[in-house]
Design a binder for these strands. Structure first.
Length: 766
DNA sequence: GAGCACTGC
């Protein structure tokens, strides 16, 4: 047995005959196929809602198989002569549904871009254009339920613009992700035949292309929530389109709640906060766009707003479920892959797995077995894809598949929404994902968990859909149909499973209290109490939960409140420059230190060069300083090489540089001199950070463990930390993460006496 | 002594 193989792989590897590969020649599998076909040939994927003929299928309160029957009847009763579906007979409690396909022609733009105009007209939504505009004209709030490929995100803003519905302001289209906002804006600018940034623009963090002529603006949900802080009525916009609302990101939820408030104020002339006070003459139109499932919930939230439905364009995907549940999903995935490989026509395979560890071990198993395939078979090329992996590695999945080869991509959720890989014909869905969940604890400040769990129905549908982007596809689910039916409909909204500290701080600057806000889903009181306590500890709120002057400053920084607090505190310690260096790296989206499992020793060796005896925060500072020195003297290529050699992620440095610039601007605004440097006074730097992380601290116990200062939890220093194995009297940490144990990550040593001075400091303030 | 899905300002 090859010595290089990871022990976990050996455990998973079986006799090749297990899936029908024997001594160089292929044969029908020895084992009966474990799959049960649940879709009939004429309506592929119907039961899973991938090719929905009935919009009501998507409300998902019933099991998919039962659903078709029950609701079909209702749908027919909704049909009327004008080609729209009216839902008048269904009682007041039910939201109204209209089908907008099949009405009215649309007007092509300009004669030059004829091809583009034709393309636009081909989109499923084009037929419903006039009906859609009419509904938006008549109603303050419209819910648009559009499937993948309907064209809603690019077309609806243009229809609204062309119809003159947004005469008095811009049309905002919000997106949860930056890439979506920028690329959609570029696409729509092309369709309008204008330069990007003129009539059509976008605004995302670090990047904005817009001008006074901009009428359609794509922006991230985070961006518009920030805008809310300086313009609480969003007076620049006359239409706000919330796209991908079903994802229920924290920021989308806050936006949706505020939009309700804003609309009431702006559309009601007698409201003192509305027309009169703000001098606004333009009422606000809201369009909520959702891909699946939760449309009725949005409708209920907005006083039973009408739901419009538009069909998508997606190739049929045939779905197979396992006959029995699988104990080992990586092993099942491997058997399924080779079944596809031996029995099915050419086409690339995408396997969804929960995390990096599974991906790497499965890749090894597949590669090992692929070598034993008979020569007349297609070659197997495996690619991996996960967030922590270098970009260049992730991008390999996009390269065209070489001739006589079948590509097998092993990916996490990254391939579910964020990235679309072309050429996928087969999807293997393990039914598992990892999800971060915040466990609020009023004492000790709560911690994150990151555990493998079952996916949701909408996630399963999304994964299957990845096989039908370019043609007919097949999806193999490594779980039974019963298991599918038992899955939750969609993921819990983010607001129910993350720390609310930052949101509460931001809302406070708007004079709002989260617990009083009319939210679609309200977080539990523990979560709110824990966040309020943290903000009080940071000195952002006083004893009456009122925003302090420091808190007002903290809210202006695009940082976690803990780090914003550290920046504000750094003014008193004279080390703002260094604190900015550290917090900008810590708030970058990817980690600075790269871990490559095969090169563990080399990684540890390289890391030693930056290691600081105080711990991880000053280790980061050392790395930043070293990079800055290299960057000053070396060219781009040498910089990249230096980063590679030291297992540092250069993209993190570059992103941190952008963040730092933004923080400097904020510092200047609130009167903090960002150039003040502590030079070698490292104690000051740690103390500044300590102000932010005072709630995240633990003392060494006589038995050598660390116990929280604010709670009873025993925490372990994460093995990736520079302080792992070191015993120091007191530590502060960036976060607690529960995986197998409760680990403190991003750990620094701090003098115990600091906490005494801190409480004195707090009393002085109170 | 052991491991980490994905976003956003």
């Amino acid at each position: 047995m090859p010595a290089a193989i990871h022990p976990k792989v050996i455990q998973k590897v079986r006799d090749p005959s297990y899936f029908g590969l024997k001594s160089g020649k292929t044969q029908k599998q020895a084992k009966p196929t474990p799959w049960v076909d649940v879709s009939d040939d004429d309506s592929l994927g119907k039961q899973n809602g991938l090719k929905r003929k009935n919009p009501n299928n998507m409300n998902g309160h019933h099991e998919p198989s039962a659903n078709g029957h029950k609701k079909k009847k209702r749908r027919h009763s909704l049909l009327s002569d004008d080609g729209l579906q009216h839902n008048d007979a269904n009682g007041a409690g039910q939201p109204k549904k209209h089908r907008i396909n099949g009405a009215g022609p649309s007007t092509p733009q300009g004669s030059k871009a004829k091809a583009i105009a034709e393309q636009r007209q081909q989109l499923p939504i084009a037929k419903g254009r006039d009906a859609l505009i009419e509904e938006i004209r008549k109603n303050d709030v419209t819910i648009l339920l559009g499937e993948t490929g309907s064209g809603k995100t690019t077309q609806v803003p243009q229809y609204i613009l062309e119809s003159g519905l947004a005469k008095n302001g811009m049309i905002a289209v919000t997106q949860p992700r930056k890439v979506a906002a920028t690329s959609l804006a570029a696409r729509v600018a092309t369709e309008q035949n204008v330069p990007l940034g003129s009539l059509v623009g976008y605004a995302v963090r670090f990047d904005e292309k817009s001008s006074p002529e901009t009428r359609i603006k794509y922006l991230t949900d985070g961006m518009i929530v920030r805008e809310l802080m300086s313009d609480p009525l969003l007076s620049n916009y006359s239409v706000v389109i919330v796209d991908e609302a079903h994802e229920r990101t924290l920021r989308t939820d806050l936006l949706i709640a505020n939009l309700k408030k804003i609309q009431k104020a702006r559309n009601n002339p007698s409201d003192p906060k509305g027309k009169g006070k703000a001098g606004l003459t333009n009422p606000l139109k809201i369009v909520i766009m959702s891909a699946t499932l939760d449309a009725e919930k949005f409708s209920r939230f907005y006083h039973n707003a009408k739901i419009l439905y538009v069909k998508g364009r997606q190739h049929p995907v045939k779905i197979y479920h396992c006959a029995e549940s699988q104990l080992d999903y990586t092993d099942a995935a491997m058997r399924t892959f080779f079944q596809i490989h031996t029995d099915q026509p050419p086409g690339d395979v995408l396997i969804f797995l929960p995390g990096q560890e599974d991906i790497e071990s499965l890749q090894k198993s597949i590669d090992l077995y692929a070598k034993q395939l008979p020569a007349d078979k297609l070659e197997v090329l495996t690619c991996t894809m996960f967030a922590a992996q270098e970009h260049s590695q992730n991008n390999k999945a996009f390269l065209p598949t070489p001739p006589k080869t079948r590509k097998c991509i092993l990916a996490t959720n990254i391939a579910e929404t964020s990235i679309t890989i072309p050429g996928i014909k087969y999807v293997i869905d393990t039914g598992k994902c990892k999800e971060k969940q915040y466990l609020a604890r009023v004492s000790g400040g709560g911690f994150d968990t990151l555990l493998t769990r079952d996916i949701t129905k909408s996630s399963a549908m999304q994964r299957a859909g990845r096989a039908g982007r370019e043609g007919k596809g097949v999806c193999f689910r490594l779980y039974t149909e019963d298991a599918f039916n038992g899955m939750a409909l969609s993921a819990e909204p983010e607001i129910l499973r993350c720390s609310l500290t930052a949101s509460i701080l931001n809302l406070k600057t708007l004079g709002q209290n989260l617990e009083e806000l009319d939210l679609m889903d309200k977080p539990d009181s523990d979560s709110i109490a824990s966040a309020l306590k943290t903000l009080w500890l940071l000195g952002a709120l006083d004893n009456h939960q009122k925003l302090t002057p420091d808190g007002r400053q903290m809210a202006l920084f695009p940082l976690e409140p803990q780090y914003a607090c550290a920046v504000v505190a750094s003014k008193g310690y004279g080390c703002t420059s260094e604190v900015l260096d550290i917090v900008s790296v810590l708030s970058a989206s990817s980690k600075l230190f790269i871990d490559i499992s095969e090169q563990r020793d080399a990684v540890a060796e390289a890391r030693r060069k930056f290691r600081h005896s105080y711990g991880d925060h000053l280790t980061v500072l050392n790395a930043v300083r070293a990079y800055r020195e290299i960057a000053a003297s070396e060219n781009k290529h040498a910089r990249r090489e230096w980063c590679r050699k030291h297992f540092l992620n250069e993209r993190t440095f570059l992103e941190a540089r952008d963040i730092r610039e933004q923080l400097v601007v904020t510092c200047n605004r609130v009167g903090i001199d960002a150039t003040v440097s502590a030079k070698e006074d490292e104690d000051s730097i740690i103390k500044s950070i300590g102000h932010g992380l005072a709630g995240n601290s633990a003392f060494l116990q006589p038995d050598g463990s660390y116990k929280q200062t604010m709670g009873q939890t025993i925490v372990k220093v994460h093995p990736g930390s520079s302080l792992c194995d070191k015993k120091v009297p007191a530590i502060i940490y960036d976060e607690l993460m529960y995986t197998n144990q409760i680990y403190a990550r991003g750990v620094s040593s701090i003098p115990k006496s600091f906490f005494l001075s801190l409480s004195a400091f707090k009393q002085r303030k109170a």
